[in-house]
Design a protein around this nucleic acid. Structure first.
Lengths: 198, 198
DNA sequence: GTTACTCGGTTAAAAAAGCAACCCGGTAAC
DNA sequence: GTTACCGGGTTGCTTTTTTAACCGAGTAAC
């Protein structure tokens, strides 16, 4: 079938996961600023230079989970079937994310996921760097949408919508509601927001 | 206490264990000749050259467990307290091994250990190489005992005794008896054999 | 009788990891 | 105020590992 991933690649991936998991779990337990990169390296059983070879900065240890979705919007637009408008494709994609309760949509009530989002939103340096990521994502989406100011404006608006929707969902769940319970509202919000984009 | 083992050393040890364990468990399951070094490398998730950097030959993948006791007899003799004769020290050491049911003494009825010994004894190339190890051990013991033919003779006799004792114990256990049950006989045999050496 | 496997074992080059030492900004000690 | 430590990152240098290719002996195919 498809286990043709070489030994090297497999181990690198595993190391990367080990570092990321160790970091996130330590951050959740003690807070971002109270955990040093040395602690993380020790927990992941790697050396400090190795850690920085996998993640350029301390913040990326947290944000790689968002980074994994990097360029997703652009890809959705590029891969849409002919005859479908970009906004429609993005709308459907986001809705599918809601139906799968994907963490990125904010609609996920697993305690770790909720705590993880709180960690990101309440740590200034993390929130700051997260917007950096989103700006890159926006640029990629703009490229996929075409050229000129028009494309860039649309890209910005789409991502703003997604950001607000995700944040809204997360807030409701952080207030104690269950994801399943919030789902209908989340879908309704998304429908409204995306149709206003057209 | 003792966490001062560097990262590198710790990982090396773990890799070595992983290879050795993978090898032995595959050998026990399928037989020495029906498992290739490639299979072992794959199971241990390392490459073939790495395997051979840890173990010089395929046989050593099995025999390293004996090799870990390499030079033990010589050390026992050298480290004996003053006033104690070499044979006495070796006798006591062997007896202590019996009391701890150490696999090397043959007096151990853990299924894996029994199967492991059967594997070694019934695979000619392994049995052959095992005697090589014992010859080196014999030379070391001879050195510890002094110089000349006299020392070499004594060394040979001591190791021969230990070999026969261990083999005898193993045979009884392979016949289905419990180690605890065999223990008194094993001690008696050892006492008799060692006192005849004097 | 070549051809083409497989298997134990080796080689050379390149990637990756470890280690120790360092830079720089902050901050606590005295 | 300087000394000293801690934090995030970096820099060489060495050790370890992967990769792919190979050698030489055995052996099955045809």
């Amino acid at each position: 079938m498809s286990e043709s991933t070489g030994l090297r690649a497999r181990k690198k991936e595993r190391t990367r996961d080990a570092i990321g998991d160790a970091a996130v779990s330590l951050f959740l337990e003690h807070g971002f600023d109270r955990v040093s990169v040395n602690d993380i390296a020790a927990a992941a059983e790697i050396s400090k230079p190795t850690l920085f070879r996998y993640f350029p900065t301390k913040e990326d240890l947290v944000l790689h989970r968002f980074a994994d979705h990097q360029g997703e919007a652009a890809r959705v637009v590029r891969d849409r079937r002919s005859g479908i408008k970009p906004v429609t494709a993005l709308h459907r994609h986001f809705r599918a994310g809601l139906d799968r309760y994907e963490p990125v949509t904010g609609l996920n009530d697993h305690p770790e996921v909720v705590a993880f989002h709180r960690l990101v939103f309440t740590t200034p340096t993390l929130a700051g760097r997260l917007t950096q990521y989103q700006l890159e994502d926006e640029a990629a989406l703009a490229d996929a949408l075409g050229e000129g100011i028009q494309a860039r404006l649309r890209a910005a608006q789409v991502l703003a919508v997604q950001r607000v929707l995700a944040r809204t969902n997360w807030q409701k769940i952080a207030d104690g509601r269950a994801a399943h319970d919030v789902h209908p509202e989340a879908v309704a919000d998304a429908d409204q927001a995306f149709s206003q984009l057209r």
